[in-house]
Design a protein around this nucleic acid. Structure first.
Lengths: 257, 257
DNA sequence: GCAAAAGTGTTGAGAATACACCCATGC
DNA sequence: GCATGGGTGTATTCTCAACACTTTTGC
């Protein structure tokens, strides 16, 4: 959607293809090299940064919409993506915010559009390796950044609360969901997954206890291979045991953090 | 909303007051006398039973809408009510189901209405004392029942899945949320809360370990009073410590079940 | 005194925590 | 041989689970 006609049609008639009043706003966590960041976009018509987002097609299953929106924005498919809350306590319309920049870029004044209606936000969070992502911009977004989770600026609407809740949920589920799948190579070392968990949880984890726990729970499996990493001892390689995560989730096994 | 004009206006023009494509469908758990039930309604136009539900007003905060719908249906306010999931993977319209009974009761054929559009369901669960509830019917519902959670019949759409997920969530949160507040008197006995937890969890809990746990966690506090209960030893009274529940939730303290 | 319900403590097993030294590799 | 990072075991504490008898009350 980049030509002037397409945008024109979307602003005027998009509600024919998409459900109004509802957006999917994923908090996309990106991990790389011991840094945990989230993807923020600069939306036209707003000064600050905000979450990516998109609309649901009229006949599109919700979870499909979430994956589509993520893929359109990041190019990534088959990603861990989970719904965690609906934010809908703000009854205001977008129009009551600022529409002048949209009007300016759009070429003429936008008086009314389904885009300005009140929206409820169905929030998902996802985990990606941000070094592998090429963020796609569109007409409505003028910039993007990967922002460290400890340095989130004030965001649009109630989105700081959204991000906070996403982070809490992610941390709660880290031992129940196969969160590392997209962030580590298929075969990885203990130090790698250790750093990943420390980064996501934002605190230190005892090296020996950590590996004991993951192996005892059966979440990972030691392989009979090592990786050469230069002038140091060669670490063993491990693999995820996906079934164990699923069992853990079903049985409600719970761990301390 | 019971007069013919009101219903007429709602069917034709309700979308002016309410957001289309979205319903709030609370799973209302009712506890009384060691029984855990859910409220089911018979909706016109459908053979089977279904969950209660309602629409969100255009300028109404989401959580307010949830409480309003619960109150309209049960008469109860200030109830424990929590959002737990959005179900939206079915892309079908209601119209593709059966509208003949609505047409029949409505007096003439209903060809098209915003009511038949595809809806996503924002699901909440609530806990009430069903002996204190007077269920309110309306034009669209012809009967209601409190149905034991172990004997749920096939429900409309994907609502069996909704109920199942509500029950799992309730059981997971029973030690984190002040779930007993509306179900027990302000001062209650250990056997009372013990029976409540056993009923909700659907299994026996060791009497001694159970009370130790609740007291150790600081969730309840022993009072210096007893209650006379006839020809038996008088049990002590206890009170909830609401702050402890809130701390438990924040700190992510976790228990086995 | 008897029937019915409430109250109370201990033990053993398993899990979580805290903690420090030796090993492998490439230069 | 040395610098760097990886690997490994044990002792202590705490939490969970299992388990049975005595006390109170009203009749």
């Amino acid at each position: 959607m980049n030509s002037q006609e397409e945008i024109d049609d979307f602003v005027k008639n998009g509600y024919r293809d998409y459900l109004p009043h509802l957006t999917i706003d994923p908090v996309i966590f990106g991990y790389h090299d011991q840094q945990l960041k989230i993807l923020l976009l600069k939306w036209i018509g707003h000064d600050g940064w905000g979450l990516p987002g998109g609309f649901i097609k009229r006949r599109e299953p919700l979870s499909e919409a979430a994956h589509r929106i993520l893929q359109e924005r990041t190019g990534l498919a088959s990603i861990f993506l989970q719904q965690f809350y609906v934010f809908g306590d703000s009854p205001y319309r977008r129009k009551e915010q600022d529409t002048s920049e949209l009007s300016e870029r759009y070429g003429h004044v936008v008086e009314d559009s389904w885009l300005f209606e009140r929206t409820l936000s169905i929030s998902y969070f996802a985990l990606v390796d941000y070094s592998k992502v090429t963020v796609t911009s569109d007409f409505f977004t003028s910039a993007h950044q990967w922002c460290d989770v400890n340095e989130i600026p004030p965001l649009l609407f109630d989105q700081n609360e959204v991000v906070e809740k996403a982070l809490v949920t992610l941390r709660q589920q880290i031992y129940h969901q196969p969160i590392g799948y997209n962030l580590l190579p298929e075969k990885f070392t203990l130090p790698e997954i250790h750093r990943l968990y420390e980064t996501i949880l934002g605190k230190e984890l005892d090296q020996r206890n950590f590996s004991k726990k993951l192996v005892t729970l059966g979440l990972i499996k030691k392989l009979d291979e090592q990786r050469a990493i230069g002038p140091h001892r060669s670490p063993y390689l491990y693999q995820f045991e996906k079934e164990a995560y699923e069992d853990a989730l079903k049985l409600g096994i719970v761990h301390t953090y």
